[in-house]
């Protein structure tokens, strides 16, 4: 199958599946008025909506071209960083550094990916921004909590920009036998990440016994079961990828584990800053962006580098 045909087939299948899931979710929500059940149905519906967004996004990118994918993730980085800045106590003396972070670092990182300049975008934030922004902040001569402030800005940029940008970077991978089909690989990656999250919630509601401290919607057993199911799904979808089935299994495992770690770390960060975790208001992108992207932030660079290291010539 050509990339076009594969894409079409996958998107069509997803649309059918999601339509069924949405119908089921709406029906379930209408049938019960038990608050606890409604809460987890709401969580499930929220994730189904997110999956619709992915399908829609790929549909658009499919027709318009790869630049749309990059734009979408750049916008997601922007909103994620905006949310991160709202969470962290920063001072007015950090203003210049933050202006640079939003208006310079984000566009530069994504332009580097658009230009496929791997050697640069892999180190731009961890090296150059890491070195330059503390200098910008030091020049203001405000040293109160200086180390904490530079650490926060760097961390925010790493998570919200560097890590998130590695998702659309997957599209640029030229793997043998799979040239020019990077978008399909990105779709595979997003499916496994999203499914891992959705299945963990469903499994937790169905069989869960010990709720996680970090996320009351998931239980230890549910996460395990959901993760296993996602790995199975990733293995079954190996035909979408340049991997053999057992390689796809291992890659999916890496995605699921990294995704779980991302969720754990980001929830810990949000709690340590005293923020109430943003409630689901049904607004997909602009609120709770960090929460939506938490699994992706850790999984994207890991998947990208594993694919590059093991599969690129």
């Amino acid at each position: 199958m050509t990339q076009q045909e594969t894409f079409f087939a996958v998107l069509a299948a997803l649309t059918v599946l999601l339509a069924a899931a949405t119908a089921l979710g709406t029906w379930l929500a209408g049938r019960t008025s038990d608050a606890v059940k409604l809460a987890w149905i709401g969580q499930m519906n929220m994730r189904i909506r997110a999956a619709w967004a992915i399908v829609l996004l790929f549909g658009i990118a499919f027709t318009v071209g790869g630049g749309a994918l990059l734009m979408f993730f750049a916008v997601a980085s922007f909103f994620a960083l905006r949310e991160f800045i709202a969470l962290t106590p920063i001072r007015s003396s950090d203003h210049a550094a933050l202006v640079l972070a939003f208006y310079v670092v984000i566009p530069v990182q994504y332009l580097l990916i658009a230009a496929d300049w791997y050697a640069m975008y892999a180190v731009f934030i961890p090296v150059y921004v890491f070195l330059v922004l503390p200098v910008v902040m030091a020049l203001r001569q405000d040293t109160e909590h200086y180390l904490v402030r530079i650490a926060k800005v760097q961390w925010g940029l790493m998570i919200c920009v560097y890590c998130v940008s590695h998702a659309p970077a997957i599209v640029t991978l030229e793997l043998p036998g799979f040239e020019g089909r990077g978008a399909l690989l990105l779709l595979y990656f997003l499916l496994v990440v999203q499914m891992s999250d959705l299945l963990a919630v469903i499994a937790s509601a169905a069989i869960g016994r010990t709720p996680l401290k970090s996320n009351p919607n998931k239980s230890r057993e549910g996460v395990f079961a959901g993760g296993a199911a996602a790995v199975l799904l990733g293995t079954a979808l190996f035909w979408m990828t340049p991997f053999a089935w057992w390689q796809a299994a291992l890659m999916s495992l890496a995605i699921v584990v990294a995704g779980f770690m991302g969720g754990l770390v980001l929830t810990s960060v949000e709690r340590s800053l005293g923020a109430k975790v943003w409630t689901d208001d049904g607004v997909l992108l602009t609120r709770g962006t960090l929460q939506r992207l938490d699994a992706l932030t850790f999984a994207a660079p890991v998947f990208f580098h594993l694919a590059l290291y093991f599969f690129a010539p």
């Binding site: 922007f78 960083l81 905006r82 949310e83 800045i85 709202a86 007015s92 203003h95 933050l98 202006v99 939003f102 208006y103 609120r287």
Partner: peptide, 12 residues
């Protein structure tokens, strides 16, 4: 946008 600055820093 603290006093004396030109560009606003996005924040929620």
């Amino acid at each position: 946008m603290p006093k004396g600055t030109l560009l606003p820093v996005p924040i929620i």
